Simulated scan of single mutants.
Amino acid sequence: MFTYFKNYLKYVNFFFINFKIRSIMTFITSFSITFFLIPIFINYFYKKKISQIIRKNGPITHFAKKKTPTMGGIIILLSIFISVILWSDLSNKYILYILFITFLYSIIGFIDDFYKIILKNSIGLTAYKKIFLQSIVNIFFILFILINNKKELYIQFIIPFTHKIIKYNLNIILYIIIYYFIIIIISNSVNLTDGLDGLAIMPIIFISLGLTCLSYFTGNVYFSKYFNFVYIKNSTELIIICLSIVGSGLAFLWYNAYPAKIFMGDVGSLSLGCMISIIAIFIKQEFLFLIMCGIFIIESISVIIQLIKFKYTKKRFFLMAPLHHHYELQGILEPCIIIRFWIISLILILFTFIII
């Protein structure tokens, strides 16, 4: 028993000597790059008059934001990529997959933002074009994973408040459908939520911290056994990406908090939504991840309800969708809505860890 404990301490100590420094440094690097580059980015975009395009049928209070620079997601992604390249093990296949797919998503988001700025409207790419481009990237990514690792064909569900996990083996078609929709739904839900100052970035930070813990539990032989998770070798390296998101996100929030001096744009929201989705898929914690993303999913559901209600009755269920606009039109102050959504997001993260 003593020998087992002694070996365990050696393993833990080695992990933290090697990994703790890199984890801290990736956080510091991503935070520093974003914090110091965003002001330069803001000034440059002010001079070039590249600013947020406001919905004509949106809340009246939003027209005061029409000169606010957008596409700050470029700096967020730049800092994440630099810090991950500097401090992660680039021989790890998970790191390379995530960086590559996120880059493709950032191109879609950039095109969407670019169209909005050039065409001077709030639509950018139409929903069909955006989904089409995302679908190509998602299916390419999932098929590539399948070709390289056919052992991934399963999904697991945690029975709340127990250590029991139900594991389902999937056929290829079902696997593609499930993971296709996870990435599509979450990336676009983050995009829909990013409508108020700091509303989307803080839940992303919370979720990234949650994924940091889950990545460690999944990639550690002892903790994965304790929590009854499937052990996934080398998945602890995903902590580097999670902490780079946290660092960059906190620095961005410094400037994106109400009243925002910059917005992340679709280039940021779509890419970050894609990135956290892929992390959850790699560590096989999709069920817990969807609980964490509850605030994003609620926002998407509010839009779906609104569209269905209006299509069949020509009446609106909400004053405006997504849901945060409904509360705005009810007269609730923007900072109040933002903080309450943050609180709900934090509660969902805590609830996720309570049930395991």
Rank of each mutant, 00 (worst) to 15 (best):
Q156Y: 11
K67D: 15
N191S: 09
V267G: 04
I80G: 01
I136V: 15
I95Y: 01
I155N: 13
T352A: 13
G268T: 05
T218A: 06
T193L: 14
F41E: 03
I74V: 15
K67H: 12
K167W: 06
F81Y: 13
I338R: 07
N148K: 15
I343L: 15
G219M: 07
I139F: 12
L346H: 08
V190L: 14
I205H: 04
K314W: 02
A260Y: 05
L250K: 04
P69E: 03
I301R: 07
V230E: 12
M320A: 10
I354V: 13
M264E: 12
I111P: 01
I178F: 15
I262H: 07
S215Y: 07
I111W: 09
N138H: 10
I356K: 12
I80H: 02
H163L: 14
Y231M: 05
I28M: 10
Q306K: 05
G219R: 03
G72M: 09
F318V: 06
F2E: 12
H326L: 04
I95C: 08
I80R: 01
I28E: 07
I262E: 07
I177S: 08
F31P: 08
I158Y: 05
L350E: 04
F296I: 04
Q156L: 13
I276A: 06
I80M: 08
F14A: 11
L199I: 14
F296M: 08
Y231C: 00
I166S: 09
S215C: 14
I118V: 14
L153Y: 05
Y179F: 15
L90Q: 06
H163N: 15
C293K: 05
I205S: 10
F181Q: 14
F317V: 00
N171D: 15
I281P: 12
K129T: 06
F310I: 00
S208C: 04
S79R: 07
F252E: 03
F81T: 11
Y8H: 11
F289W: 14
I356R: 12
I281N: 11
Q156M: 15
K130E: 07
L96C: 07
T29H: 04
K233Y: 14
I117E: 06
Q285H: 06
N7E: 14
S224F: 01
K20L: 11
P322Q: 01
I177C: 08
I145V: 06
C293S: 12
I155G: 12
I355W: 06
I332F: 13
N43P: 02
D89A: 07
N191H: 09
Y46F: 12
S224G: 01
I245Q: 00
L90R: 02
K309D: 08
G58R: 05
I343S: 14
L209H: 02
T26F: 03
I304N: 02
K48E: 01
D89F: 08
L199D: 02
K130T: 00
I159Y: 11
F41P: 00
A257C: 13
M292G: 14
F110N: 09
L319T: 05
N169P: 06
G210M: 11
F341R: 03
